[in-house]
Design a protein around this nucleic acid. Sequence first.
DNA 1: GTAGGGTTAG
Length: 584
Amino acid sequence: MTVKLRNVIPIFSSKQPLQTPKTVSPTYSNHPIIWKLKKCSAPQDLQSIHASMIKTNSHQHPFFMNQFLTTCCRLHEIDYAFLTFTDVADPNVFVYNAMLGGLVGHSQPIRALRLYVDMSRSHVLPTGYTFSYLIKACMQIPALGLGEAVHGKIWRFGFSSQLIIQTGMVDFYSSLDKIEESKRVFDEMSERDVVSSTVMLLGYARAGDMDSARRLFEEMPQRSTVSWNTMIGGYARARDVESAASLFDEMPNKDLVSWTTMISCYSQNKHFKEAVETFGGMKAAGVSPDEVTMATVISACAHLGALELGRELHQYALLNGFDLDVYMGSALIDMYAKSGSIERALVVFYKLAEKNLFCWNSVIEGLAIHGHGKEALDMFHRMKKAGRIFPNRVTFVSVLSACAHAGFVEEGRRMFASMIRDYSISPEMEHYGCMVDLLGRAGLLQEALDLVRSMVMEPNAVIWGALLSGCKIYGNLEIAEAAVEKLMVLEPNNSAHYMLLVNMYAEANRWGEVAIVRGMMKGRGVQKRGPGCSWIEMDGVVHEFAASEMFHPSSNEICLLLFGLDGQLKLAGYSLELDFNSLL
DNA sequence: GTAGGGTTAG
């Protein structure tokens, strides 16, 4: 898509006098319609309010329309706002600004830029706010490179010294990773307020320069809650959980965003337990969560396998009339799928009014991990049919792993080829891993090895490990030896690879080699790795299991059950690869 | 009406 600069940023006639619009008389602020709009929290009420505005002809009045549009946008009724906006015969700059703000706030930069074109064609003069929205729109489509042009335009209009414009430019440059430009504009500012300094903080945080951010933060004469939150968020991004936590403890008035930022900081840095605990602290502090908090905490539950808490949160969201948006939707789908309930995950998925790539990826991944390979692929095709949403690398990892687990060799090959050809996604380590797994499980070990050797990047231990498991199933010692040779370099201390080879030699009655490999392990001092562990929650209690340990109070019963299962599986004709004795 | 927090990853 190309947008001609000339069409987007038209040149104003310089003959027009530049004037700042006068503020609308405040006498209307007590008008019942304005009052109703300010209080309005239900989108379905908008239509009747608009009807009463038409009756009194106030739907043409700039002050009323400004309030009406702002209300629509606050309630996410952006299309309805636009519809009523087009009905206004002669909108002034306040009305345009409200509409622009709504469009930019709902990430519709192209519509915003078009509206700006209309505005200039109607000879409505922009204000500083108009340009600040324009800068935001440009930030949302950096590829067009319009920011500089807008900057030039602002300068010509004499707004360049306005605080709000300079603030916008600091933000604009830092959003494009041009931190030096941000600093230049910031240093040139003759006056600074809390907001401009906080935007600069955000710039440093985006650039990962938390030392400079801290210096500015310490120097700031006033700090708002937003300044604190920006700092905490910056440390979260920089993976400095400790600094984030200590700043959070220190901060005086924690609001909803502060708590959510801290929870997300823990979650993003894999401290899921702390994330859930902090959520508890938030509730104890009497701060109510919103959709953003919920999405974050539910995601932490998914990682912990805390189904019970996750379900409670879902319940809470339903009771409080929260919007089931794409963020919370994806988190819920993932949480239910990972905690064993693909049915509930699907219920959430079908309930979603709007689905983005995250939602589709979560449900495809969920089906894949539940072994529903065919359903996962069906879902993938439905996503393609729905249009507008294009698969990414994450999608293909799920799709390929679904093929691997269901044994769809031909389909997997096709998907892999299509990913490269139709979607220009270059295969990454994970994709190769799935393909090697797929081919290996199907016994196509030579093809798998050829694929590994064709890789542009150096294959990692996961790849060789997948190949080795394939060799183990089909007793292909030749390729297994090649894989183990690589694995010994990549993970020299992982006993599993040596043991796999030992078992294979033993199965082939090659006891000489068994002794050699065992000797190698001893000689290299290969230790058994730390235990892998897993959690599962039942009736609100999280049970932790680690390989080769018997700490769980019901270990004996569990092992008895497993042995029983082992026997039943053997009876059913399934030869189990696992040796339980090695686990105990 | 300018600043801060969100989801998927064998």
